[in-house]
Design a protein around this nucleic acid. Structure first.
Lengths: 341, 341
DNA sequence: AAGGGGTGTCGAAGCGCTTCGACTAGGGTA
DNA sequence: TACCCTAGTCGAAGCGCTTCGACACCCCTT
């Protein structure tokens, strides 16, 4: 491997000069700079990452902690990860992949050994064990999702309370009086996963505010689960005409189930999903939806982290607004028979 | 941050002794060892990763290069990634996440800067640009998938040729005489992605060998694409009674489409999928399938890499056998009307 | 009693880089 | 002309660890 000393010798300068050429931290004459750059190219020099990290106290690596759960929707996670890696590279950083099952201890490990300079943590629960640890860590972090007590932390997320509310408002505006939220699997609620809880809150508050019925039910990912959940739901509340879905994997099965049950979408049943745009577009009929802007959130997370590393102050909480796109899966509520009302 | 010198002082020994206690590379008396270990705990010492890497020429980090493509099935990728990270941690290594869009240059970057000790590369094409680069890199690598020219490289993959063949054999054994392979999107074939091409080969060879009709068609991920592809397929080949699917995202839509077209599974149309077991189990009816053992492949990849790092020789090519599990989606071919034959 | 071989520990020399202080020239100011 | 600044470069001192050789010391052999 070629070292900075080799480059210095080749260019006829001191090693420190090479370093300054590379970092730009001191003025270097054009002549010297170009000579050094030529030597760098000629020798194919790449600074040794460990040496650099040791001397500069910066590894230029960010940790990304992702959940390893089967009850989460994987493609969305992947979109986050992709956005984070891509953005990190733009700022000359790399990404170390950690799985959430290492727990709080895993965060301490990578932070205290200076393996990374900063952390991005996903899949936050309302009372997340990792939160107190992150607070004490000697380096910046950003949460994707936000816990109950976010004091002293930087959080970025879609405004899921607003997302839940937007769905209700959209359906209520169309005249629907009985709505249901078809949510994530039970385990996600049991863990008090922040995004699921907050959507629930938004859904409930908006239903209350609009004076409409709002029932909620979790739903597992299998076809049978969808079938039974929907059947039970419609048995108990036959007048439901609007469905809010926050559970990407069941969207396909759900459309199928509704067909089987003889409910046309949107004529008999309006549907609004909280999901990625491409998923909504891909369905038949295309779904009205509140999008989950994974790219923006991931990119934003990295940018906040880089700012913090540079010593800047960043907003403690960034909630991206929940925008609803109306497509073909929702329409005016069916005319109600006034005699039964 | 507490350093090895602090620990040494606290324990009343030399820094090198602390190092030897931690690494176990030299004999240390029980007495000293325990004293040092107590000091390590008392001070909460964590070795600095960069210093360690610099001195030992080992970063204990593996690079994982994953595709960032929308035409690939994401959950499977994630399963690979999870298995790789989990296994790496078992061998005291971490994982640096790279996206394939950094290209060959990205591999050189992390390798030549000694950011990582070894690489795992996924989503291999038959004529992959990264292959020659990997061959020249001064560190071991493992490919998940295998290229045409795998000379001097270590590859691990499911035996997709056998997988394609197993599906044909299964259906042929059940008496089906006309089969179709519903494959990945066109772009995947255009890139000459190894697993897709090899499945195709296995499918063709087996169809030929068994003397059955075997037609192939790519298929995009939207519902409409599935509908049109299947319609066209059945229009052109009305006698097809067996379908092999290598395209996880379309499995749900496909079942739906077949129902719409009035083809019962398995009575009118037998189905075999190449997909993860849990996906096969989740469908109605449950699908006969050749499983993609992502966990095993990922785990195996890391283990091979660790062996190579330790200087051991490892097999150049590991092809995991393709096992077919028969479930409810495939059955005896419908009785043929001999007058039309 | 002298020599030989383990065993356990230490000190010092790096690993390859960054960064600080110091030094030299050259140009501007008084 | 003397002085001071700035720009440009260098050397040396680390960063925190691993590892090599050296050195005691003890026990066993002859």
């Amino acid at each position: 491997m070629v070292t900075i000393a080799d480059v210095a010798r080749h260019a006829g300068v001191a090693a420190s000069t090479v370093s300054y050429v590379l970092s730009g931290k001191r003025a270097i004459s054009t002549d010297t700079r170009e000579r050094v750059q030529r030597s760098v190219r000629a020798l194919g020099y790449r600074p040794n990452a460990s040496a650099r990290a040791l001397a500069s106290q910066r590894s230029n690596v960010l940790a990304l902690v992702i959940p390893l759960r089967t009850d989460m929707h994987v493609p969305v996670m992947m979109q986050f990860a992709a956005a984070i890696v891509t953005t990190a590279r733009r700022y000359d950083h790399d990404v170390l992949l950690l799985t959430a099952d290492e727990g709080p201890e895993g965060l301490e490990r990578v932070a205290q050994s200076s393996l990374v300079d900063a952390l991005v943590v996903m899949d936050i629960e309302l009372h997340d064990q990792r939160v107190p640890v992150l607070r004490e860590l000697p380096m910046p972090s950003v949460l994707i999702g936000y816990p109950d007590d976010a004091d002293g932390l930087t959080c970025i997320d879609l405004d899921f309370v607003a997302a839940g509310a937007r769905c209700v408002d959209h359906l209520a505006d169309l005249g629907h009086r009985s709505l249901a939220l078809l949510g994530t699997p039970t385990t996600v609620y049991e863990r008090q996963t922040a995004f699921a809880q907050r959507t629930l809150t938004g859904f409930e508050e908006a239903a209350e505010r609009r004076g409409v019925l709002g029932v909620e039910t979790p739903c597992e990912h299998t076809f049978d689960a969808v079938l039974h959940t929907v059947q039970r739901l419609l048995d108990n509340h036959p007048d439901i005409t609007g469905l809010v879905v926050q559970n990407e994997p069941i969207i396909g099965p759900l459309l199928d189930v509704l067909r089987r049950l003889g409910r046309r979408v949107p004529e008999d049943m309006s549907l609004v999903a909280i999901c990625a745009d491409d998923v909504a577009e891909r369905q038949v009929p295309r779904l009205s939806s509140v999008t989950i802007p994974a790219e923006r959130i991931g990119g934003q997370a990295v940018e906040s982290l880089i700012s913090k590393l540079e010593g800047a102050d960043v907003a403690a909480l960034t909630l991206l607004p929940a925008a609803l796109t109306a497509r073909e899966s929702s329409c005016q509520a069916p005319h109600r028979d006034l005699t039964t009302a």
